[in-house]
Amino acid sequence: MIVDIERFVENETPYWRELEGMLDSLERDSGAVLHLDEARRLHYLYQRASSALARVNHMALAPQLRETLEPLVTRAYTEIHQGRRQAQRLAPFHWFFAVFPQTFRRQGWAFWLALGATLAGCAFGVAALALDPDVKPYIMPFPHLLGDPSDRVAEEEQAELDDRAGSHAPFAAMLMTHNTKVSMMTLALGVTFGIGTLCMLFYNGVILGAVAFDYIRAGEGVFLSGWLLPHGSVEIPAIILAGQAGLVLGRTLIGWGTSDNLRSRLRKSRPDIVTLIFGAAIVLIWAGIVESFFSQYHEPVVPYAVKILFGTVQLVVFYLFLGLAGRGIGLRWLRRDAP
């Protein structure tokens, strides 16, 4: 029981002010690191303020004093029990070349499921167009793809090198931002327990399958490969990576295969989700540049063989990167050769 409330407040106020000052300085500089003595002092002041709050919590002098102490204890509690790890030095290269591929492999099941949904959509698109050619306007919502593929190929092959000059940068910017938004949407739909993500991937697959079938049926398979492979070899996997992230979120919400509670599951999987979507966004930036500056040129400006070779090599390198990077293989190889 606090008999003399005035003396209690007067005695404790310097400690509360000191705690407030420490919290202010910590909140101003999120990268600040406390020395051991400062950390001990902060903890002591937090415990002292907590103790004061516990003493006034059930007393009538609340809410005035309680409403003074509660924000202070809240802030101190947040600072001391923070979920954020210690301030880490930014290491973008390590993140991209090690953490990103490691995360991809750790959540590999989701990638294969996302790929499966895309391929199922492709099969549906092929079957739909094969069985009913009139369905084309409904499953290919792009005006430039609705005409005869051979007409488009003839038109594209007549284009000169300078015809597209000046439009590369805005086109690349539009592609990057649009595709990144699509990938974010694909991830966000994972909140519907993954169903929305699967639908999005299936729909993308339907368009892809229908376009591919339309061009192959028209005998323009080489043009199609030369057009799609240079950027599609990374753009399509990037969208599937976003789907992978969405499916990780969906599985986390369902709780399949773990006895952890939802909060714990989300805490564990969130860094993987963020890594996958940021990785996908970076790949899409590259894909946008390639699509704008390279994919849009056709024979005779750029031979199809060069474009197909570029796309194939890029696909293999990207696959090797996701499969091998971050395993420390190079380091192990160096150690084995060391005397």
Partner: peptide, 23 residues
């Protein structure tokens, strides 16, 4: 915006809650 348990926000929490704006 705070963590459900009153803790400081992690970067991944900020990113996920903002990406979900699409839905």
């Amino acid at each position: 915006v705070i963590d459900e348990q009153g803790l400081r926000l992690a970067f991944s929490q900020v990113v996920v809650r903002n990406l979900m704006r699409f839905v």
